[in-house]
Amino acid sequence: MSSSSSSDSTAIEETKFIGSVMAKTIAYYQNRLGETSRARSKLRNPQLRRNHEVGHYRLIEDYFADDAIYAVKFRRQFRMRKEPFLCIVGDLEGRFPYFQWKMDTERVKGFSPIQKCRATIRQLAYGMGADKWDEYFRMSECTVRECVYEFCKAIYLVYGQRYLRKPTINDIHQLYTVHEGKHGFPRMLGSIDCMHWSWSLCPNAWRGQYTRGDHKEPTIILEAITSHDLWIYHAFFGPNSANNDINVLDQSPIFNHIYLGKSHDVPFQANRVAYKRGYYLTDGIYPPLSVFVKSFTCPNDPKIKEFKEAQESARKDVE
């Protein structure tokens, strides 16, 4: 009996000891968490009184008033004319609550549609940081990023069905007719080429793969197809500058609709040879495919010289 009672008392003491250790441990970490949260609250930046309306009226005075200060620089700063910009602002404001000028819970006016669209266009056009325009637009970094996301999503929903699409059969016939009348190339769909976009804010870890010897700073490649009226109905953006046009073409989804059997075949004949679809004007680096019409390197025949000049002139649409 004595041995059993001593073992029971030992177990009780061990249980009490373990319980006291656990209680002290929990109390210790609770105090640490409380100190950390208090320290974070002290380090947290205070809410700034940015006065959104001041930023709006400054923007109106600089670019949109009848006697705007920088009216002559509108196209350079916005990368478009005033009329298309105001049309975009009106379309987004009328369809999406995010771009409407509303008041918050404190009855303070938020950002205007012009402020949100202007901050987005500025960041997309110049590729600078989201906190670059805080002093002028009175916008925080997270707000500018949110504006960019909502703007891109809204643009796709509003204009995607009209502009961001593949040509239909009617579009193809119209392209055939216009290109033949303007450039003299029958059954021409457009011009394809690649260009390099400067990326001055490229992360240091990626600079090696996005830098080429013929460019002073990192660049990103854009592959595009455009028509006579600068309708860009194909754009493949993102490959690093170490690629050439052929490497970009291998990665591009330009011919995926043909592989999947979803292309619109509008056949024609040239020199008694039947072709299923039209062609694109390219420079000399592209592979010898039936969908590509390239120029000649060193022509000697007068007819070939004339063709070379016409082909290079028509290809300027995309360049």
Rank of each mutant, 00 (worst) to 15 (best):
I172A: 03
G208H: 08
G238A: 04
R207P: 04
S227E: 06
E217R: 09
T168I: 06
H264T: 11
H179T: 11
I232D: 00
K166M: 13
S198M: 06
I172W: 03
R165L: 01
G238R: 08
I172Y: 01
K262A: 10
G190F: 05
Q209M: 14
W199G: 08
L249W: 02
I220M: 07
H196V: 04
S191I: 06
N240H: 15
Y233F: 15
R165M: 05
L230P: 00
W231S: 04
I246Y: 02
R212K: 09
E217M: 09
T168V: 03
S200C: 11
Q161E: 14
K182T: 14
T168N: 07
H228S: 13
P203Y: 04
N256D: 13
A235I: 07
N240V: 00
P267C: 02
N244M: 03
Y176N: 02
I169R: 12
H179S: 12
I258S: 07
A235N: 02
V158S: 01
D193T: 10
G261P: 03
F237T: 07
K166H: 13
Y176T: 09
H257Q: 11
S198P: 05
A205V: 13
R187V: 06
T219W: 00
N243V: 01
Q209G: 02
P267Q: 06
L230M: 14
Y233T: 10
H264I: 11
H215Y: 14
T219S: 10
H234Q: 07
I192C: 01
L164P: 08
K262Y: 08
R165D: 05
L230W: 08
S227W: 00
K166A: 11
Q161L: 11
I246T: 15
L230D: 09
M195I: 12
S252T: 11
N247R: 12
R162C: 12
L249N: 02
F237N: 09
K216Y: 12
G160T: 08
G190W: 04
N244V: 07
Q209P: 00
H257C: 12
V248D: 04
H228P: 00
S200G: 07
N244L: 04
G238F: 04
G160V: 05
K216R: 15
H234T: 02
P239N: 02
H173I: 11
V178G: 03
V266G: 02
R187C: 13
